[in-house]
């Protein structure tokens, strides 16, 4: 294979991998605390992207637009927990998962009502130009995607590992009753995790809009991809989410580059699902751990 093509596939894989990692982080945050798979996570991404485009096209500068989108999406995440998941907190886990799916359709419907079915896009952040390295092209948005994902991963490492609130979030997932006996409010922590995951989703939405465009219907496919990426690595560990995202991104990029007839998505998914069948708890997790 031509060296420049291999390099191109690598950069493309890194870009996709960063996106899937960032998507997976949202699932990780909610799942770590509540053990609920939030199937509305992709909708937060869509919402974030749509809001950034809306604010930006109304003349608000990019950074305040992103911040506003993050705040509004976080409030939407907190609202979903408070008004839909919290009242059902004593129901079985699967009921809550289906409730999040219902929320996804509600958000989708609202987005369709306000923004219509058209795709919307943004230029690369600050009009960053594409660059050429050894014959491979790196799109101007790619460094922003990779950089922001790295910052989010580092932030979550510090938050979960070195702050008492982050430890309290982990404690809720590990031993909820024990958490209550030391004074941690499970409900407050769950609310916070939904808001945080929605905020992460909004950042991802802002990051990918210049690359993929955004529309009201993009949430569920993103949910499927982010969830799979998180599960491939191991959804209960942030390292697992990173690894899963990167593996997924690389496989999708390589299959897109090598298979000419355009079925790369299906093949990438088949490889990952096959991998999950062999290692059901993810690459980093073994039975009985995590």
């Amino acid at each position: 294979m031509d060296y420049s093509i291999a390099l191109q596939l690598f950069f493309s894989g890194l870009n996709l991998g960063s996106i899937y990692t960032a998507l997976g982080l949202g699932f990780f945050v909610v799942y770590s605390v509540t053990r609920v798979l939030n199937l509305a996570q992709g909708e937060f991404v869509m919402l974030g992207g749509m809001l950034v485009v809306t604010f930006y096209t109304k003349g608000i500068p990019l950074v305040p637009s992103i911040l506003l989108a993050v705040v509004i999406t976080s409030l939407a995440g907190a609202g979903i927990y408070r008004f839909i998941i919290f009242p059902a907190r004593k129901f079985p886990g699967m009921t809550k998962v289906f409730l999040t799916l219902g929320c996804a359709f509600i958000i989708q419907g609202i987005a369709l009502h306000f923004w219509g079915w058209e795709f919307r896009s943004l230029a690369a952040f600050f009009d960053t130009p594409s660059i050429q390295i050894c014959g491979a092209t790196i799109f101007g948005q790619t460094p922003w995607v990779i950089g922001a994902t790295l910052i989010m991963v580092a932030g979550l490492f510090v938050f979960f590992g070195h702050t008492i609130q982050g430890k309290a979030l982990r404690a809720c997932a590990n031993e909820p009753l024990g958490a209550r006996t030391v004074g941690i409010s499970i409900e407050r922590m769950a609310l916070f995790s939904f808001a945080l995951a929605a905020g992460i989703g909004a950042v991802v939405g802002a990051l990918i809009t210049p690359l993929t465009m955004t529309s009201y219907s993009m949430g569920l496919p993103l949910t499927a991809k982010g969830l799979l990426a998180a599960f491939v690595g191991g959804i209960t560990r942030v390292e697992g989410v990173i690894l899963g995202g990167l593996v997924y991104g690389m496989i999708e990029s390589i299959t897109a580059g090598l298979i000419p007839w355009g079925n790369h998505n299906v093949i990438a998914l088949a490889i990952l699902v096959g991998g999950l069948l062999i290692r059901r708890r993810g690459i980093l997790l073994t039975a009985g751990k995590g």
Partner: peptide
Amino acid sequence: DEMKLLFSSMSVIDNLILGSYH
């Protein structure tokens, strides 16, 4: 509690720190 209710996947020091959470 009789079952201790420790945070089993967290370190000893983190368990102690969380004891002062309130």
